[in-house]
């Protein structure tokens, strides 16, 4: 019986061939690396994440991060390690500090200003507009003209 099974296995190469090994020795650590690296900037590249870049420095930095993960350092510690050496430039998510306040609140301030302006304008406008420049009558006339035009053309 064992023989038969062995022969079957030998004949069907597909079954014989094994499942490919993951590239990384430790897939869990690799997942953490990836999670960190997509928010980090490769310094030598034009504009790529540490995860995507194949530059030698990016490879070295990934190696450093892998070692730090192996040493069981927290994400925060790893990021601090990199920021201490390369500055905030490595972070694709800029930290919230005095100089970046405008960056982070800007979009929402913009929205508030826009919304307020819209409401105020609409309110003010409601008092001012007396007549309607494009009246329904005019619209009808336009449509009529257009209809005639289509018949003529």
């Amino acid at each position: 019986m064992t023989w038969v099974m062995l022969i079957v296995l030998l004949l069907s190469g597909q079954v014989w061939a094994g499942e490919a090994r993951p590239l990384a020795d430790d897939p869990v650590a690799e997942a953490r690396l990836k999670h960190l690296a997509v928010e980090l900037r490769c310094l030598v590249c034009q504009n790529q994440t540490l995860a995507d870049s194949n530059a030698p420095l990016a490879e070295d930095l990934r190696r450093e991060v892998r070692e730090m993960i192996a040493k069981d350092m927290s994400d925060k510690e790893i990021i601090e390690f990199l920021v201490a050496r390369y500055g905030d430039f490595v972070l694709y998510r800029p930290p919230l500090k005095a100089t970046t306040t405008l960056l982070w609140v800007g979009p929402f301030v913009l929205l508030m200003i826009g919304a307020t302006a819209l409401i105020i304008t609409l309110r003010r406008r409601a008092h001012k507009v007396v007549d309607v420049p494009v009246t329904d009558e005019e619209h009808r006339r336009v449509e009529q003209l257009l209809a005639e035009g289509s018949k003529r053309s």
Binding site: L43, V44, P56, L57, D60, L61, E64, R85, Y86, G87
Partner: peptide, 13 residues
């Protein structure tokens, strides 16, 4: 040779 001193000094090129 491994670029570790470089990383500690923040060398990027």
């Amino acid at each position: 040779d491994a670029g570790r001193v470089g990383i500690n000094y923040g060398v990027y090129g």
